[in-house]
Design a protein around this nucleic acid. Structure first.
Lengths: 341, 341
DNA sequence: CTGTTAGCGCATTCAA
DNA sequence: TTGAATGCGCTAACAG
């Protein structure tokens, strides 16, 4: 493994000169020596040793991407195209900027802090952080941090985040359901914690109902289990004749699509017997029949914007907008029945 | 940031002693000093500096996971639950073993070699490597390597890999189609390169047809474009009345499901008008209607086995089976019509 | 424009 | 059972 010193010796120059060539400090090297050094660099296939770089610079150029989730639900969550799209976009951006992508899942804030320290992470992107945990991490970590889809419990502290107009999404879909004559609906949250994202979407629903002077109280929601069989039971129960609901309002296309498929297998028709709405507008919503009426979001953009914001933080550039909330859009398709009159 | 030296000073011992405590070399430390050191370690929240470790040990404990694909098709590929499942499983295993997970996509072998060198990777997992490239990487990299879903062009060289009985999968699905009376089928490959995995699946199809003395020649296949609109055109064309095909044989559930959905939108019924088969048995095949007849594979297992094989290589343990080929299984559902008599 | 030097934090001899 | 010394490869401050 050729080192800088080795190249320097071969080229008959000092290590410093080699470093300067490597870093493009062409002002400090004559063209002749520069070219000579470059020849040897190529000849011996020089590759830097990041260990030494970390030690010398206190920076690894690694971006740590941490997804807050129960490790064992890994597969379920990652099966959702939503996460893949974000990850794919981030990997691409990070690589393009000459940084490295380290992926980690956890629910433990200490682990995040430790990771940042041991690896001298250039930056952190935290996904789905519970509201109380975010501020703590922010306090104990040196690297710049950008949150994705995390609503933090902080008024005073400034932080950087990329999210969605979740509340508006909930509002739009509910207003549409109301227009279609639906009055008894139930909200199905992705997360048993019912924090952040889900909560805001639900609030949007409540707002729409309140506008019509209907109270959608907190009981009109279900926190979906991570166990598929449990979820199936829930779907059956909610759509049964004994239940008053005319529509199931899901907080993701993933579960909405799962429900549609399951209900159809049980002989329950969507939307004739019961209406269903999704959230995300990902591949599932277009693939199943009926196509899902849902809220559109661009999840790749979320990843891309998060990375570019982080890069600005790393380079200490100014950030015009520290808390980006991406737009949502109602996408009307075929999974909601008009039950007026 | 506390260092070993710092802790040593606080505890009134030498750095060596601290190292020994950290590494569990309890034979070299008395219980009393050990406990004292541990107190200070905790008190100051010691976290190692991986930069220094890399330098001293020439090993970063990072596992590089490299997916060979056109960077810009990132999203399309990762949207497939198949990749997510593998990634999720690998992340989990790697973390559980106390290693770190670095993700990288590329098509360039040099980049892989450079990554391995600069980061002193503890090991590499390479996914979807083109047949000629694999051996080259193997030659120029020091770290142990495990391939996933890569059929390498090497007879003499031993390498380590986890794959699937792709040919058997192709065979099983084709034999089933033949039993159902299908004679004119067309194979739709995932990859425009038509290498490795796709090729073997196609060979399996040919074998099944040959058994019936029907020649399925190489023309009876299409390499699907990465452009959705192009694919749609292909689906339309193949299912039109002018075409002789009674069944579309896909090399993934992802595209099969996409095709089914698109065809249905065009008023073409599956399987009444045309039969469709998938490959993978992932969430798509169960979610759409008709449910897809497909070949089952456990993609999480692929990831897990790859990691555990790599760990054995890293620890220089013996490997009973260097080239694992996971079993496939025919899953008969509702997307193939019986057209006998 | 080029070279010398010190030090980053750790593991690893070797000595005591 | 403990400690001192060395070197891994690189950057940056300083000298020439």
């Amino acid at each position: 493994m050729p080192t800088i010193k080795f190249i320097a010796k071969k080229a008959g120059v000092s290590p410093t000169t080699v470093t300067n060539v490597l870093h493009g400090n062409y002002a400090r090297v004559s063209k002749a020596t520069r070219e000579k050094v470059e020849t040897y660099l190529k000849k011996y296939n020089y590759a830097p040793n990041m260990g030494a770089m970390i030690l010398a610079q206190n920076d690894s150029r690694i971006i740590g991407v941490i997804m807050f989730m129960e490790p064992r639900w890994n597969e379920t969550v990652l099966e959702d195209p939503f996460s893949s799209a974000i990850l794919g976009a981030m990997e691409e951006e990070i690589r393009a900027m000459g940084y490295f992508f380290m992926l980690h899942t956890t629910t433990d804030k200490e682990e995040v802090v430790r990771l940042a320290k041991t690896w001298k992470l250039a930056g952190l992107i935290l996904v789905w952080v519970p509201r109380n945990i975010g501020p703590i991490i922010l306090d104990s970590v040196e690297s710049p941090v950008v949150f994705i889809d995390s609503h933090l419990a902080t008024k005073d502290k400034t932080y950087h985040s990329v999210g969605l107009k979740d509340e508006e999404g909930g509002y739009l879909i509910s207003r549409y359901l109301l227009e279609m004559g639906h009055r008894k609906v139930i909200f199905l949250a992705n997360d048993t914690l019912f924090s952040g994202t889900d909560l805001h979407r639900f609030r949007g629903c409540q707002k729409a109902f309140k506008e019509r002077n209907i109270d959608l109280d907190l009981d009109e929601k279900i926190l979906l289990s991570k166990e598929k069989s449990e979820r199936y039971k829930t779907y059956s129960k909610l759509s049964s004749k004994e239940m008053p609901y005319t529509a199931l309002v899901f907080s993701s296309d993933y579960y909405a699509a799962e429900a549609v498929s399951y209900l159809q297998d049980c002989g329950i028709r969507v939307p004739e017997d019961i209406s269903v709405t999704g959230f995300d507008d990902n591949i599932f919503s277009r693939m199943i029949h009926p196509h899902l009426t849902t809220i559109h979001q661009n999840s790749s953009d979320k990843g891309r914007i998060a990375v570019s914001m982080l890069m600005k933080l790393i380079k200490k550039q100014e950030i015009e907008q520290p808390n980006v909330q991406l737009d949502v859009e109602l996408v009307i398709r075929d999974s909601v029945k008009d039950i007026n009159n």
